[in-house]
């Protein structure tokens, strides 16, 4: 089986498994001996409460950075699903008490956590934690919550919401009376605690044992910095060009202050790992202050945004916007080091000519015999004498330059850049007849 059908199959398998694990509590409620019915709406509310909790537990799996789980879709899509399905879980969890309140308004008294029984206190606090969790994620930037604080809070609130909901189920005691049902919920609990221990304790501990040292910090065009790391006392890591790693600087891996960045260096030279970072957010603004000799930790490589997964592709098209050039630069450097002469087209959008990160090196690669590279710059604010493409990457621009790459099925496209640009380019490519399976994206800015 070639790589693509195998990935599709794997992708479908994970979706089926996700559905099975989410719906398992409902099936168990249906098949096992159950207490006698207490009215349709009450039982309906109970059922969605159980399913909502199963969904909340599975959220931890989605963000546990299992490479085998993310391989078929790409990391960004798994995070995006985590975000979307959390909203669905939130609605379902919220509907659980709302239905009970509508059915019998006297139950509203349970909201008074000072007078309510413990089972209600657990339930109410769990929902409150969930409300804060969702609100702080959806509106992190307007609420001006620092990314590091948000990440730590996100983990703590999620843990609290699930633990409190488990307590609520045990204290209510309904539908957990049989050994099979108890075993299922204990199993869910153990699985979840084990996962948490793996992500928060074992993984950081493994990272601590494999530190890196900052070798150099170099300014680049476009308000960016390139950070080069080398392994300190171990063999380092190997990666595929286009992948990313979680980087911890000036902090311990246990502090949960890591940030995802694409490798920008060649995968053929893994002893010097380069990351090119634009000054955009809380953390990235301080990159220029990092000094050679400082210690760093890496969790990676991650991500499926790589040409290495498409060995049989005849050509590649890269569409980069701003600092989205970093994973693509890693791919170009790697292909050049490997002497890969497959035809490549790079469409590179930037605000202005002076801010085109890696401009000189891209020009060198274009002129060299190591690559068969064609480059199209698209400038938002071009200089007066500019005779290249201007504005944004549109369907027209793509049609003009992709004409050498006919038919559309003959190439794989990699897009990385700001969210609106990626959406527009993806739509344009689909309109030009490019297969959705041949379009690969990397999106980071989800929170």
């Amino acid at each position: 089986m070639t790589q693509k059908p195998r990935r599709y199959l794997q992708g479908i398998l994970w979706i089926v498994l996700y559905l099975a694990l989410t719906l398992a509590p409902l099936f168990l409620l249906l098949v096992g001996p159950a207490p006698s019915g207490r009215g349709f709406w009450r039982e309906f509310s109970v059922a969605i409460g159980f399913a909502g909790l199963a969904m909340m537990c599975l959220q931890f799996v989605l963000t546990a950075r299992f490479r085998w789980l993310k391989a078929p879709y790409g990391s960004d899509i798994v995070y995006f699903f985590h975000r979307q399905v959390s909203l669905v879980a939130f609605v379902i969890v919220l509907a659980h008490p709302l239905i009970l309140f509508i059915e019998d308004p006297a139950r509203l008294g349970l909201l008074n956590v000072f007078a309510a029984p413990w089972r209600a206190r657990f339930g109410v606090t769990s929902v409150l934690a969930l409300i804060v969790l969702i609100a702080s994620s959806l509106w992190r930037k307007p609420l001006k919550i620092h990314y590091d604080a948000w990440r730590i809070g996100h983990g703590l609130l999620a843990t609290a919401a699930v633990a409190l909901a488990m307590g609520h189920i045990v204290l209510v005691g309904h539908h957990v009376g049989t050994p099979a049902k108890r075993a299922l919920w204990i199993g869910y609990g153990i699985f979840w605690v084990g996962l948490l221990a793996y992500v928060r304790v074992i993984k950081p501990w493994l990272e601590m044992r494999r530190p890196y040292v900052v070798e150099s910090v170099t300014p680049e065009r476009g308000n960016a910095w390139t950070l080069v790391l080398r392994p300190d006392g171990h063999s380092g890591l190997t990666f595929h060009p286009g992948q990313f790693a979680w980087l911890t600087l000036r902090s311990s891996p246990f502090a949960d202050r890591e940030h995802p960045f694409s490798f920008s260096s060649s995968a053929a030279q893994p002893q010097r790992l380069g990351f090119t970072i634009r000054e955009l957010g809380d953390f990235t603004r301080k990159i220029g202050q990092v000094r050679p000799g400082e210690r760093a930790y890496l969790d990676g490589p991650h991500g499926g945004f790589t040409t290495d997964r498409h060995e049989h592709a005849a050509r590649f098209v890269f569409i980069a916007g701003g600092v989205g050039i970093t994973p693509i630069m890693s791919i170009l450097r790697t292909l050049a080091d490997r002497g890969d002469r497959r035809p490549l087209l790079l469409v590179y959008a930037s605000r202005d000519w002076e801010g085109v990160t890696f401009r000189e090196e891209i020009e060198q690669l274009r002129a060299s015999s190591r690559l068969d590279l064609c480059v199209v710059y698209v400038l938002e604010r071009p200089p007066a004498d500019w005779d290249g493409e201007r504005g944004f990457v549109t369907a027209d621009i793509l049609r003009r330059h992709l004409s050498n790459f006919e038919p559309p099925s003959a190439f794989e496209v990699f897009i990385c850049g700001p969210q609106p640009m990626m959406d527009a380019v993806e739509r344009a490519l689909l309109g030009l007849g490019v297969d959705v399976g041949d379009i690969h994206t990397e999106r980071f800015d989800l929170v």
């Binding site: 719906l23 409902l26 249906l30 019915g37 309906f44 969605i48 899509i77």
Partner: peptide, 30 residues
């Protein structure tokens, strides 16, 4: 496109849960 598919999957999971929950509630009371 992939984002739309994953949104559709998330909504699909929600609908499935609601349908199965209704089935459960119905069977419990009959």
């Amino acid at each position: 496109m992939r984002q739309r598919l994953s949104t559709a999957l998330a909504i699909g999971v929600g609908i499935l849960i609601l349908v199965l929950s209704a089935l459960f509630a119905f069977l419990q009371n009959h």
